[in-house]
């Protein structure tokens, strides 16, 4: 469980996160939705500490991340896995080396057991026979999946996914969504997913949080998303004409 208390973050006098309070629950997919530029990525990067927040508190299962020193943070980060919006695979390494990288860094297993773990993770995300390819040789969807494999290699307790299915075809997108959701339940981890894709929200959003211009505007489940009277959220959810017409029927 991750708890955020009164989070503020500004860039040059412009507040991007404005008094955010939320609880990300364990064993569930917590989905943050919002328009492009609403601060989803900034929020995720603040939670993992890539961006320093201006004020507020971030608690990882009662451990206060905001007050930790560098060493403690590094220790805690071994429990985190993160999927970046662009994948962020190491482009000088092969797929296999990418997934093995955290294992090499933080375990002292021998090569064959590490390889077994790598194969397991790649299998889990549905990538087979690409071990020796360079990351540049993968398609966008494969890159995302390889990045997920790397993120789960060390069995994290906290998983962060920044738009895991942007730029993918609907079928692949749903596969990735389901994958994240399955992993979350299977290992009982706390997962935070950023998305602006309503399909995936309805697919996996155990808990849905809508942020609008850096403020937390609405919170609920995927069932409730469709029946809210929050105007901003309605405009977001039923953005397309098709959705609007279906709703009117």
């Amino acid at each position: 469980m991750i708890t955020l208390k009164n989070l503020y973050k500004k860039f040059d006098d412009q507040y991007v996160l404005n008094d955010l309070n939320m609880t990300l629950e364990k064993g569930k997919c917590n989905v943050v939705i919002g328009q492009s530029g609403s601060g989803k990525t900034v929020l995720m990067k603040s939670i993992v500490g890539l961006l320093e927040i201006d004020s507020g508190e971030i608690l990882y299962d009662e451990r206060n991340f905001t007050r930790m020193g560098k060493k403690e943070r590094q220790l805690l980060r071994k429990e985190m896995g993160m999927l970046f919006q662009g994948g962020a695979l190491f482009d000088s390494l092969t797929v296999e080396e990418n997934v093995m990288f955290p294992l090499n860094m933080f375990t002292s297993d021998n090569y064959s057991s590490k390889l077994k773990r790598v194969d397991f993770c790649l299998e889990r995300v549905g990538l087979r026979g690409v071990n020796q390819l360079m990351t540049a040789e993968l398609s966008g969807g494969m890159r995302k999946r390889a990045a997920i494999a790397r993120a789960i290699a060390l069995s994290p307790r906290y998983l962060f996914c920044d738009e895991p299915n942007s730029g993918l075809d609907p079928r692949t997108a749903i596969r990735i969504d389901n994958l994240i959701s399955e992993i979350t339940r299977e290992y009982d981890i706390t997962t935070l997913v950023n998305s602006h894709d309503m399909n995936s929200v309805l697919e996996i959003g155990d808990k849905v949080i809508y942020i609008y211009q850096g403020c937390q505007c609405w919170e609920g489940t995927k069932e409730e998303v469709l029946h809210t009277d929050n105007e901003a959220l309605n405009n977001f959810v039923f953005a397309t004409r098709m959705a609007q017409q279906i709703k009117d029927i």
Partner: peptide, 12 residues
């Protein structure tokens, strides 16, 4: 390309 961020998040 956020590879440095990825390293940092891993705790490296």
């Amino acid at each position: 390309t956020e590879q440095i961020d990825a390293l940092e998040v891993m705790g490296i």
